[in-house]
């Protein structure tokens, strides 16, 4: 599903964000990406959705090398990957329904298909009753569910989550994690960057640790720390 080989990213100011990282994520896996701030977690995710170009190395999604894509191909790649963000990235003037439908509008889906699909994912994340509410009227957890619904509406095979519980209290964080676990159970591959030690330790999923841009650990069913 996701392959990185000797993946390196050096920014124009000379900072080495990723240094020769090699890893493979199989279809259907749930992987935690852990490490201190500046370890390279977000950089890695940004390379997967092509917000950035790698300096060298190979990165492939679904057996397609995405290091060198044309603009149109980048748009197509992003449609096959769902992303959820720490700051939700919702459009404040659009309702919950419109925010989710937006991801289908851009691929010019039919109105009926949009309606069906949006209501299905809103039901999945438990927000069917708040479809016509603005994001500002929702709690942080609910906003993250909207973001999750938007990332799922295109039925992505790969879901990237960049600190999705970073702004949430522990209970709400667990609600989001339960949803992610359910989505993973249905077959979606998930790569989640997080600082949340408790979640990583309790979920017992594969853990890839980065430090100063280097892959320092890759443990199946691991914990946040090496000893765990």
């Amino acid at each position: 599903m996701l392959i990185a080989k000797d993946l390196t990213k050096i920014f124009s100011n000379g900072v080495v964000a990723l240094d020769q990282v090699s890893l493979t994520v199989q279809k259907g896996e749930f992987v935690f990406l852990v490490g201190p701030s500046g370890a390279g977690k977000s950089t890695f995710l940004n390379l997967v959705i092509r917000r950035d170009n790698p300096t060298s190395g190979l990165i492939a999604v679904n057996q397609q090398n995405i290091a060198f894509l044309k603009k149109k191909e980048i748009a197509l790649l992003r449609r096959s990957i769902g992303v959820i963000f720490q700051d939700y990235k919702l459009l404040p003037q659009k309702t919950v329904y419109e925010n989710v439908a937006f991801a289908l509008e851009v691929i010019e889906a039919r109105t009926r298909a949009i309606k069906e699909r949006v209501y299905t994912v809103l039901e999945l994340v438990g927000l069917l009753g708040k479809a016509h509410v603005l994001p500002s009227e929702l709690s942080g957890g609910e906003q993250q569910r909207v973001c999750l619904a938007r990332s799922l509406v295109n039925k992505p095979l790969l879901l990237l989550a960049d600190e999705p519980t970073g702004n949430l209290d522990p209970d709400t964080s667990w609600e989001i994690m339960e949803l992610l676990r359910e989505i993973n159970r249905r077959g979606t591959t998930i790569v989640m960057a997080t600082h949340n030690r408790e979640i990583v330790d309790q979920m017992r999923k594969r853990v890839i640790a980065l430090d100063h841009g280097k892959l320092v650990r890759d443990t199946p069913k691991g914990g946040y720390h090496l000893e765990a």
Binding site: I49, K72, A75, R79, K89, A103, V106, I107
Partner: peptide, 14 residues
Amino acid sequence: RKEVEIMKLVGATD
């Protein structure tokens, strides 16, 4: 600009 960024991230073409 945030709106533009979100549009691009969900796969909108230029």
